[in-house]
Each structure stands twice: as C-alpha cells, then as structure tokens.
Design a protein around this nucleic acid. Structure first.
Lengths: 211, 211
DNA sequence: CAATTAAACAATGTATACAGTATCCGGTAT
DNA sequence: ATACCGGATACTGTATACATTGTTTAATTG
C-alpha cells in the first residue's frame, strides 16, 4: 500500500477548483477563507494557501484587504489564455518523442468514449482533458506540461459555463479524429497546426457567447 | 501622495528572489522559514506564503515535510524554460501593436546604457530585462506578459551564476541591435524569429557551461 | 571500532489568536 | 427622501502556539 500524505492545501485547492468549475461558486462571488475552513473542517492557514495559489493561477481575484472572489468570465481573458495555449500545446507536440501506436490506440479509445458520452457535460470536459493529456504526455518538457495543465483550468471553467448555460451537452469530436489522422500519417507539424487552429476557433466560439 | 500598502508576503518574495539571484542563497541550500522570519522581523506566515509561491514558480523545491531548498542549476531546466520563452516572447511580439518610434528610441537608449555598462554583471542583467520589457510592453495580452516575467526569473538566475562563475561581465549586445534593425524596417516577423533563435543559442551556451 | 538505535532537538505543517480595516446598518440632519 | 455620519460586525492579514515529523547526536551493542 502506498501511504500518501497530501498537504491539506493541495486538497483544498482541488476542492475549490471543482466548486468553481461546477458553478457552485458563481463568478464574482466572494470566497471567504473563514467559511471554507469551517465547512472543510480545517484551519484558515491551508485554506488561505490554496486561495493564494488559485489567485496566482488566475482563477480568483485577490484585492488586498478585501479577500478573494471568483474571477468573472471575460472575453479578454479567454482570448489571452487561448492565445497562449494555442502556442504552447503545438510546441509540446512538436517537442514530443515519436508517438507510438500504443498511444494512438489510447487516444482512439478516449475519443470513442467521448463520442459515446452525450448528456454529461462535465464528463465530456474531463475526457477531452484526458485526451489532450495523452496526446502531449510524450513531451519531455515536464515544465511545459505543468504550465499547460495550469493554464487549461481557465478555458475549462469557461467551457463548463458554456455547456451549462448554452445548453450544449457534448463537444465536437471531429477535431480529435483529424489530429489522430495526421499523427497516423506521421505528420506531426500538421497535427500541431490543427491544435493551433482549434484554439483559435474555440476561443472565437466562446467569445461570441460571453455576455 | 500615493499611499501604498504592499503585503508583506510580496516584499518577502522579492527579497528571497534577490538573495537567490545574487547567490547569497546558493543552489541546494535549505531555506528555513523560521530563520528568514527572524531576520526580516516578520512572522512565519507571510514568509511561508512567499516560499510557497517561489516553489510554484520553480525557484525553490518544496519537499513535503522537509521544507524548502534552492533548486539546483540543471541543464534540463534551462532547456525547458528556454524552449517555453522561445515560443512565448515571439508570440508576445507578434501580438503587439505597432511599435512606435518613441518605443524604438527607448529601446535604443537602454541598449546604449547596456553597452556602456561593463563590469557590473547584475546591472547588465537588469538592463537586459528592462530592454525585453520595453520590447514587449505593447502586447495587449497582459497575462502573457506576466507569465513571461515569471518564467524569466529562471534563466535570470542561471545568467547570474554564469556571469559570476564564468567570469564574464557583460552581455552580447549584437542581438539587441539586430532586433532593433528589423523593427525599424517594420519586419515584426523577422524580429520575432530573432528572439526565438536567441533563446536557442542562449540556452546552448548555458547548457555547455553547467556542470 | 562500526553499526544501530533511541532520545533530544529542531523545523515543518496546521491551528488559533489578535489587530487593523472594510462593510453593513441604523440614525440623524439637510 | 436622500445623503452623510457613527457604531457594530465581520473579515482579512499577520502573529503566535502547538503537534507531528524529520534530523542529529550520543550511547549502547555486536
């Protein structure tokens, strides 16, 4: 058995992130460390550590002396983060080692599960996340992967809200199969270009929807 | 008069960063929150908040239960961060608004000061930082700029160590004038490409020097 | 004498306490 | 009625306290 001792701050971090994603903590609402600490049964210290990290990640806003609140969805923000991911994900793909058939198979499997998963928007987003993780896991630049994972939290929140409020319940899966085709033909650059374009189009779709 | 109330954690953050850059806290050495708190005359709380942020930035390592230590210089790390900056800085430049003559003049001024500054390595690095800041400040993607600033902390530490230990006392300034020339001709893409190449070459130079 | 272990010490992670501010609410004056 | 003031409340940022865990040292045993 693997004994693991995860710091409380990390658990709290994930908890709040999930609450924000699910919309339990609506955009603009205040996040009080005291209240959270009581609910979670821990002290304010690790809660504040998690909140500070989330503020650094751009999920929360931290005004000095006024505490934290959930950042509002904002056209500019999704555009900014989209531009960054549109550069970084293709970079990660290009830096990757040869993509072995085993990985292609796993990508196909996840894509298929994603296609079958209709109606459960949250699950769709998780599967799409996993698909991208598998796609890029061959990149030796661990630091780049960590950054991508952190950045993706932002569009994920937008996507959650989008699927929730715009009533859509699944993601387009054409993109996945196109990328896969390119990879099967060994055309890494093409696949990278597809990723880049996907971010451009995805951002536009969200921007046109945001209030 | 502008009354400003900077959180202690931010001041501590900058303080530690400077200590690390200057080599006062050598790579691999432990950073004890208690000791720092005593020295700075504050409590452990804001010190720990600063340390956690520095760990997130990759300046420190944080092993659970074993506190913090200054991350060791490592060939892989400079390569990883260099690859990221080599993608992000050109992106920021390409997203920038037209670069006005006023900014070109400021770039020239800083480049000139940099050329005159020989012997003071720390000052050189600061000026090089400022040059890049001015170069990219026209980019409307604030978030990208913040990320670049954070990431640059890593190579800056390597550069500090390099100039200190390899005995070099100034930076090559050819790069700056080449980029400036391209910008004067209005060739933004060329300038971006120069930035990309600079990171590739800079990283190689450091990698060949690191133990 | 080397290896091992246990006990004292020290440092981390978390909890609690405190001081200073912002926020909210009711009252008063215009 | 509305705008302004004052007090009470609540919350943030920082300090301090505590418990657990890692580290070191010294003693003991093979």
């Amino acid at each position: 058995m693997l004994i693991t001792r995860a710091p409380i701050r990390d658990q709290v971090y994930r908890h709040i992130l999930e609450q924000v994603d699910r919309g339990d903590l609506p955009a603009g609402s205040r996040v009080r460390d005291t209240a959270l600490a009581v609910v979670l049964g821990v002290s304010r210290t690790p809660v504040r550590e998690a909140l500070l990290r989330l503020a650094g990640d751009g999920v929360l806003d931290a005004e000095a002396g006024r505490g934290f609140r959930v950042r509002r969805l904002d056209r500019a923000e999704i555009g900014e983060v989209g531009a960054m991911l549109g550069a970084l994900e293709p970079l990660a793909l290009e830096l990757s080692s040869e993509i072995l058939p085993e990985r292609l198979a796993r990508l196909e499997a996840v894509a298929e599960r994603l296609e079958r998963t209709r109606g459960d928007a949250l699950r769709c987003i998780d599967l799409d996340d996993e698909w991208h993780r598998i796609l890029l896991e061959g990149c030796p630049n661990q630091r780049l992967l960590r950054l991508i994972a952190t950045l993706r939290q932002i569009p994920r929140r937008y996507l959650h809200a989008y699927l929730r409020e715009a009533g859509r319940v699944s993601l387009s899966t054409i993109h996945h199969s196109r990328v896969l085709q390119a990879l099967r033909r060994g055309e890494r650059a093409t696949a990278a270009e597809l990723l880049r374009r996907r971010w451009q189009r995805g951002v536009k779709e969200m921007e046109s929807w945001i209030p």
